[in-house]
């Protein structure tokens, strides 16, 4: 018997190909933008594009979009903890230089 919370959703080949194409476009974008001298803005663009790519991988390749709320909350919490860890360190490191 199927478990109630089992994710029944099967992603089609076509849909996965679309996600892959989007990831390739983002990779090309980030490489091209990195060749243009924008100073600190280069870092912002590189990390924003990386985060967008990471979201595509997590939600679709890793299937998180179709998982239950408990799992989604857990994953969100893990990333919030990492953000606190890195962010709070900069309260100390940031003003030093």
């Amino acid at each position: 018997m199927e478990h109630e919370s089992r994710s029944q959703h099967v992603l089609s080949y076509g849909f996965l190909t679309g996600i892959f194409a989007a990831l390739m476009v983002l990779t090309a974008t980030t490489i091209i933008v990195s060749r243009i001298e924008l100073g600190f803005f280069n870092v912002v663009v590189a990390l924003s594009v990386a985060s967008a790519k990471a979201s595509l991988v997590i939600f679709f390749f890793m299937h998180l979009k179709y998982e239950n709320r408990t799992l989604k909350t857990m994953v969100l919490l893990a990333f919030i903890l990492l953000a606190i860890c890195i962010g709070f360190t900069f309260f100390d490191v940031g003003p030093r230089t």
Binding site: T30, I31, S34, N42, V43, A46, L47, V49, A50, K53, A54, V57, I58, F61, M62, H63
Partner: peptide, 25 residues
């Protein structure tokens, strides 16, 4: 298979951040 796949996607995920940090910045 799904769990092995999850591990593999994590490896990809980490590279997605390593790549800009070492090659693009």
């Amino acid at each position: 298979l799904e769990n092995a796949g999850l591990y593999w996607h994590l490896v990809d995920l980490i590279w997605i951040f390593l790549f800009p940090l070492f090659y693009l910045i």
